[in-house]
Amino acid sequence: MTIDWWTLGLQTINVVVLVWLLARFLFRPVSRIIAERQAAAQSALDAAKAAQAEAEAARAQAKSEAAEQASARVAQLAQAQEAAKQESARLLTKAHNEVAALRAQTEAEIAKEREAAQTQMAREAGVLASDIAARLLSRLPEGARIDGFVPGLVEAVRKLPEPTREALLAQGKLALRAARAPSAEETTRIEAQLSEALGGPVTVDLSVDEGLLAGLELDAATAVVRNHLRADLDRIKAEVTQDD
């Protein structure tokens, strides 16, 4: 077996030339287009990733804004609730105050009416007591409406302070009201007993006041001495009223 060296050399050159030709016209263009497609795909992927990142950022921002809005809504709701609560408390307080004022006013009116009623009742009771006392006194002898009260009047005058008694004595004529017109004898006896109590002679200027019911009342500039049923009734009424 022999080898044709010319053929071997030519075939070697042919192979090398074919390698160059196919590299030039086949492998390099195909590899280039593959690389370009991969670059385009990578670019599209990068763009998609960028868009995805942008979308993620937008979604995060929207989420943040939604959270902020929710927070603001909650805050506004809480604020509105607080305002409503305060307004409710204010209205409630105002209503309480109005009710309290109305109640106080009503209670004052009731108290006033009660007081007026009590006053009226006291007044009517006084009138009734006066009528009763007058009717009862009408059954007593006439002398009892004055004579029975003279010792008490004299005793009260005697208990007056010394300067008052001296002033009464210096006055000389004392104004004296009686439940009925006394007789001359009764007037003399009253003057005698008062002179004895004051330690000097005095006269009386008697006047009639049926409102006294029974008894006497010494009415001087420096002192007033009462010893009659009207004063007793007034005192009793005042005590009863105070007790109420």
Partner: peptide, 21 residues
């Protein structure tokens, strides 16, 4: 240079491959 059939056929194949590419 003697040109043998493998060389000629190889040239034809090279031409076909190159033109095809």
């Amino acid at each position: 240079v003697p040109i043998t059939s493998p060389v000629v056929i190889s040239w034809a194949l090279i031409a076909i491959l190159t033109l095809g590419s």
